[in-house]
């Protein structure tokens, strides 16, 4: 459905994307993961036909997104990463205008989405919060029932409850056979919806894997607090897990150890269960840390 082939674009200064290739099948939700500045948005700009590739092509349903402007967009819904609307419009007048541009006759889909996302369409856009603008953008990307939906950082600005609603909307569309490409710099966001994901770094795709493989590859950092120092020491010495004792602060805080877990959850649970544990916390990490091993390994290969 969506084919990116050997896409290359070099910007003055040497940054850019280099030989990016992947394809998304019909009805698949494809994640596009990478830290800020890795080339996600540049790739999406090529997919949307906003930029001309130096080399390579992007096709959607066989149509070249650069050359077949005017035809491709009928198949595509797009949520830009940075939401900017026209001046002096309300949510409703913007959606009306976009609907006419997209040639939407039937408003039931739009009204349904507005219901789900729960926002007041009559608010002037300049008075909207970031989350509310994001909702308007989501409705605009979905309301004409496109075959392919491209979402650039879709859940930024949405509260956790709305993120959940959003995921439900995506999954319902997926049921209908809609194809998705979703970019993100956060793995958990991708994990809940995507079938497969590509990881991009410095403009190069370093992996295209299904989500289960990625889940087993990811490295999670737990902070375990033990009741007693001796038990903590025993855990560190015998568990065989990758550990790191943080500055010991026995004054009421207990004895903390950071444990890096990558796939071996069984072992982690079994080893910690041997001792009296006061608390377990999960560390939120950035993408490079989650896939640290992967990034490093690739780094050496190159």
């Amino acid at each position: 459905m969506l084919n990116v082939e050997h896409l290359s674009k070099t910007f003055p200064g040497g940054k850019g994307i280099f030989d990016v290739s992947f394809s998304v099948k019909q009805g698949e939700v494809f994640g596009f993961l990478g830290p800020n500045g890795a080339g996600k948005s540049t790739t999406i700009r090529h997919i949307m036909g906003f930029m001309k590739p130096d080399k390579g092509t992007v096709t959607i349903n066989g149509l070249d997104t650069w050359r077949d402007q005017g035809k491709v967009q009928a198949l595509v819904g797009y949520l830009p990463g940075e939401i900017a609307f026209f001046d002096g419009m309300t949510g409703k007048s913007f959606l009306d205008f976009m609907g006419r541009m997209q040639g939407v006759k039937d408003l039931s889909k739009r009204n349904h989405l507005i219901d789900l996302l729960q926002f007041d369409v009559n608010t002037p856009i300049r008075k909207m919060s970031k989350g509310m603008k994001q909702k308007v953008g989501i409705v605009a990307a979905f309301m004409h029932e496109p075959q392919v939906i491209i979402l650039d950082e879709p859940t930024s600005g949405l509260d956790p409850l709305m993120q959940k609603v959003f995921i439900e909307i995506v999954l319902a569309e997926k049921e209908r056979g809609t194809t998705f490409l979703m970019s993100s710099h956060s793995f958990p966001e991708i994990e809940r919806t995507c079938d497969r994901a590509a990881i991009i770094k410095d403009g190069v795709i370093i992996a295209v894997k299904n989500i289960h493989e990625l889940q087993s590859m990811q490295r999670k950092l737990f902070e375990v607090t033990f009741e007693q120092e001796a038990e903590m020491q025993a855990f560190v010495n015998t568990s065989g897990l990758q550990t790191e004792t943080s500055a010991a602060s026995p004054d009421g805080g207990g004895y903390r150890v950071r444990v890096a877990v990558q796939g071996n959850y069984d072992r982690f649970v079994a080893e910690t269960a041997k001792y009296r544990v006061r608390n377990i916390d999960i560390f939120t990490q950035n993408l490079e840390d989650i896939f640290m091993n992967y990034y490093d390994r690739k780094g050496i290969v190159q």
Binding site: G70, G77, I83, A84, M98, A140
Partner: peptide, 20 residues
């Protein structure tokens, strides 16, 4: 202004051409 703001992206994501 539309390019700078980014709202041009919405126009170009609908079935029309840049020339139009």
């Amino acid at each position: 202004k539309l390019v700078d703001q980014g709202s041009m992206a919405y126009l170009l994501s609908t079935p029309t051409t840049r020339a139009k």
